[in-house]
Nucleic acid binder design. Sequence first.
DNA 1: TTTCACTCTGGGGTTTCCCCCAGTTGATCC
DNA 2: GGATCAACTGGGGGAAACCCCAGAGTGAAA
Lengths: 241, 241
Amino acid sequence: MTILIADDEERDRSWLKDLLVKNVPEEGPIHEASDGQAAVEMAVKLKPKLVCLDIKMPHLSGIKAAEQILAELPRTGVIILSNFSDEVYVRQLWKVVPGDSVFGYVLKSASNEQVVEAVRAILSGDCWIHPGISRVIQRTQNRATSLTAAEFEALVCIALGLTDSSIARRLYLTEKAVQSRLKSLYSKLAIPGRGEQQDTEYNQRCRAVYLSYRRGLINQSELDDWEQKLFDGKVGGEKQQ
Amino acid sequence: MTILIADDEERDRSWLKDLLVKNVPEEGPIHEASDGQAAVEMAVKLKPKLVCLDIKMPHLSGIKAAEQILAELPRTGVIILSNFSDEVYVRQLWKVVPGDSVFGYVLKSASNEQVVEAVRAILSGDCWIHPGISRVIQRTQNRATSLTAAEFEALVCIALGLTDSSIARRLYLTEKAVQSRLKSLYSKLAIPGRGEQQDTEYNQRCRAVYLSYRRGLINQSELDDWEQKLFDGKVGGEKQQ
DNA sequence: TTTCACTCTGGGGTTTCCCCCAGTTGATCC
DNA sequence: GGATCAACTGGGGGAAACCCCAGAGTGAAA
C-alpha cells in the first residue's frame, strides 16, 4: 500500500513521514515529491493508495495536482495538508473533487493524533475534514453569504486595484455590469452604503477587499495567479471548465 | 548558558530544541514558552543568554516580547525566527531593537545549517540576518521608496477600508491633509495616476493596498491590531512611544 | 410551466476621490 | 543663513465610484 507525500518544505515532509511510519503500521513504501508537478508524475507511475498534498507548492498547487491525479486515478485517497483555511481554497477544492471521492482536509496546526486519525479515515474509505474548516464550508454553501462566480470575479479585480472601466474591458462587460456585480458583492459582505448608517464610514471598494482578505475569500498567492491570467488576456477563470 | 525558546507551535519548538541540543554543544538547559507573555516572564526569571522568538504568538507578538525583554536585560541575544519576511515586521523590529544589541532574524524556511549558524553567531556576539531579509532592509532605508510614519498611517487606514473623511476624523486631520498623505503614498508606490499612462488602468487606492500586501508593508494580523486601536479612539500608533 | 435567482442593461442622479496649482510651517543639515 | 524636505492648508475642477430606479433575458429548479 503505497503512500505519496508532496510538500516543498523538507522539514514537513520528514515530519509527516515519521508520523506515518510510526502510527500507520500497515503502510508500505512512502515516496516524496517536492512540488505539484512531480507529485502528479509520481502518482500516475506509482498509483498510491493515498496522496498527501500541501497547497502552497511551486509549479503546481496541491489543489490542481489533486485535480489531475483524481482525473487519472479516481480511486486515490487525497489528503490536503495545509497551513491555510482560506475560503478560496475550499471553493476550489469542492469544484475539483468529484462528489464520491475520498478525501481529507487537515490544517498543519493539527495535533499529530488528528493527522493520524485523518489518514486512517481516508485509508478506510471515509472523509475527514478539519474542524476549523467546517465553519468555512458552511459559509460557502449558505446562499445569503456565499459569492457567485460573477461576484467573485469582480472581487478579484478590485482587489488587484483595477478601475471599473478596466475591469469591463478585461471581462468584456459594460461598466454598468461591473458596477452591478460590485453592488451585490457589497451587499453580501454587509458593507454599509452611503445612505445608511450615520456617517460615510467606509470606502466600500477597499472595505470589500479588506473583509475578503479576513474571511480568506482571497489571498496573496491566488491574486498573483489572477493577475497573470488577466494580463495575458485570458478571462473567466472560475467559469470555464 | 540558558536558552529560551518561544513558539506557539509545539512542533516547531521541539524541532528547534532538537537542533540546538545536537548542534550547539556548549548549551545548557533549554526552556520553552508557548506565548509572548510567558516568554517575557520566563526571560526575566531565567536571564537566558539567548532567546528565540516566533513572531506570530498569542497574547504578545515576538517583536513586542523582544522589546520588553531587551528593556529588562539588554545583554540578551535575541533571534526572531519567523515564517514572514514582511516589511512591516522589519520596520517594527528596527525601531524596537537598540542599535548595539545582538540579534538575528531567521526565516523558518531556512535550512538547519543556517539556523545553527545564526545561533552560533549570536552566541559569539555577532548579528545574523537572513539573506531574504536584507533586500527588505535595503528598501526600508531607501529614502525614495520607504514610507514615512504619516504615509504609513494613511496606508493602514485605506487598507481597512475607511473613507478620507473618516480617516481625517480619526487622526484629527483635515481631509486635505489625508489626501496629501495619500498622494505621496501613491507616488512612492509608483502607481500611475490619471493623467499619465494610456488609460485609467488603476484605482490607486485599491492598487496601493494590493501592492502593499505584496511587498509585506502590511498584512492581515497587523491590520487587525490597527483596527482595534482605531476603533478604540487611540491614534498615532507608529509615532507614539 | 411557472417560478426564482442571477445577470446585464439603461437613464439620471450625488459624492468621493484624485488632479492641478500655490503657500506656510517646522525640523534638519551644511 | 540658506537649502532641503516632510507635512498641512486652501481653491477649484474633472472623473470615477456609488445611488436610485426599472426592465429584460437566461437557466435551473419547483
